[in-house]
Amino acid sequence: MSYFNADNLETAHEIISRYPRKKSALIPLLHLAQEQEGWVTDDAMRQIAELTDTTPAEVKGTGSFYEMFKFHPVGTYMINVCTNLACQLLGGEELLAHAEETLGIKAGGTTADGMFTIEDVECIAACTEAPCLQVNYRYKLRLTTDDLDQLIDDIRNGRATDIPEHGTLGLVRQHVPADAGAGIVAPEQATERPVWLARNDAVAEGGEG
């Protein structure tokens, strides 16, 4: 039962290799799964369980704690409208209502064509630029309802080229060249004092002498 495509499987193994415990890769792997299909399928969780020596129940137990992971299909473009206090004070709720009306869906819903999902979200960390939203976690700041209409129109007409499809986060991944890494440190493998701390001894001795 394989879910990841060949490239992503290789990426998955690389991600796992950066942690002393495989289970630590669980959240990054769920992101990778979501990147591949736009949401997290049961098959994806089964394979992640295999890759991290956990059970599918553990994978879902962890994954479902975090709201970015979707366990059912969502729109290609996820519009997250912030309504937390800073945005509320400057029209966040009105912006959300406008989005709902324009797209004909309620927060949490997805348009019939599978293009958009709207969510009513907590603070997205752009509070001075209220009201604001994220489309697939890309910021759109100080939006008027007209701006929102324009944004939706741009997306519908393929003009929002700066926004990747739902599931894709950072476009650059960390990559540690084999010869450049210091090596991951597992608790059971590294019980010795790091070598550079010996510099403290030299001074202590020097001081005594």
């Binding site: 049961d42 956990t54 059970t55 129940a57 553990e58 879902k60 479902s64 704690f65 975090y66 709201e67």
Partner: peptide, 27 residues
């Protein structure tokens, strides 16, 4: 299930007020 039996087949799912115990679908 997890600590004593080692059969981690039931788990907390979701969060906060929606937290529930459940199995993975079809397992």
């Amino acid at each position: 299930a997890d600590d004593v039996a080692g059969d981690t087949l039931i788990h907390f799912m979701d969060r906060g007020n929606s937290t529930q115990v459940n199995t993975f679908p079809d397992e």
